[in-house]
Design a protein around this nucleic acid. Structure first.
Lengths: 189, 189
DNA sequence: TGCCATTTCATAACGTTGATATAGAATAGT
DNA sequence: ACTATTCTATATCAACGTTATGAAATGGCA
């Protein structure tokens, strides 16, 4: 129903399944519980996809690949992305949400170790900066404010700028992003 | 009702006003029309607030002030900000939405003219990068993923990094942001 | 196996939502 | 002053999420 851009309604959900509305209450504690479970599944799949990316010897490219995979997930299922982040549900105290950011932090730290970026950087802060830019970009196209094709060149330009400001050589940053981006966009997970 | 974090419902809206539910249909064409009008008002007030900021001789500081005013608007009325950008309504073909971005573009252009940033910059792209970062940050705290106090130091750090990568001296960028930020946060409009 | 406690789930109903049909009141135009 | 149009209060509708209730299924234990 998310993929078909239908509004998720309890009655249409159970229609045709032979099961009754009560099942949603025994298994998910109502519609909010069900939506929460869907969102948790979204976080879980995103974390799996990010963790499935290989660690190459070019950490900046790995950073770009993670960003591309993140954006691809949002693009393949925009409604799910909005559901995960629109604040319509209480946040899960589950690890999955923080795990995606943790994944980013670790790649940033690898970039610092490889001296592609300033070792004096605060990895948590910088990872959050990258995430904020990426999240803003994803929100803009998942909510229909801009199209993906409008957003993509601008968010990649912003990422390259941030990599460069973190100490990487600007040309290297652009090359690493170009390579990592296609890696991250490849085959959805 | 937005400020009280109540869900906006037609019947509770007209309750106590002495007017009937039909008035919403004659004046706003239903609930979606009313929500659309509220959102348009949100864009309009935001544009007014941004345009009301003075243009100083420090365009980077002006850029920071615009960002701070933008964030302050989102903070003072988080539900309105979410309503404006959560994609739950068809986008207005009205100018107000684009006007806020246009305001940003003009300040970026002033910064380019003052040679604080690289004159070869694409003002539209760079303004969008700033907007994406700011929008992502605002979304994170308006939806409750992070608190404003968590977001603020990281988004300002990201903005300074972008200003620096655009050609400004990093220390000057930080100073201009510190000054502009308090200007933009001052007295809500 | 036999029995009881618990869980599961279909049916039916309840309260609330946004939207509409209709008819009477207000308004505007000539 | 009369007509035509617009407005709006009342009543109603379909659909929503949720809850009550009782029957069926399940599980644990002697």
């Amino acid at each position: 129903m998310l993929a078909r851009r239908e509004t998720i309604t309890l009655r249409r959900l159970v229609a045709g399944t032979g099961v009754s509305t009560m099942a949603v209450y025994t298994y998910f504690d109502g519609m909010d519980g069900l939506r929460g479970a869907v969102r948790q599944e979204g976080f879980s799949r995103l974390a799996t996809r990010l963790n499935g990316l290989p660690a190459t010897d070019d950490p900046i490219s790995d950073l770009a690949a993670a960003g591309a995979a993140y954006a691809a997930s949002a693009r393949e299922n925009p409604e799910l992305y909005v559901l995960m982040f629109d604040g319509s549900l209480p946040l899960p105290d589950d690890q999955a949400a923080g795990a995606t950011l943790q994944c980013l932090i670790e790649i940033v730290q690898r970039a610092m170790n490889s001296e592609r970026v300033d070792p004096g950087l605060d990895a948590v802060v910088f990872a959050n900066e990258l995430w904020m830019l990426g999240h803003g970009a994803c929100m803009l196209f998942t909510t229909g404010v801009l199209s993906f094709d409008q957003v993509e060149p601008m968010v990649t330009s912003g990422l390259v700028r941030l990599y460069g400001a973190a100490g990487d050589d600007p040309d290297s940053a652009r090359r690493s992003l170009d390579y990592g981006w296609v890696r991250g966009l490849g085959e959805g997970g």
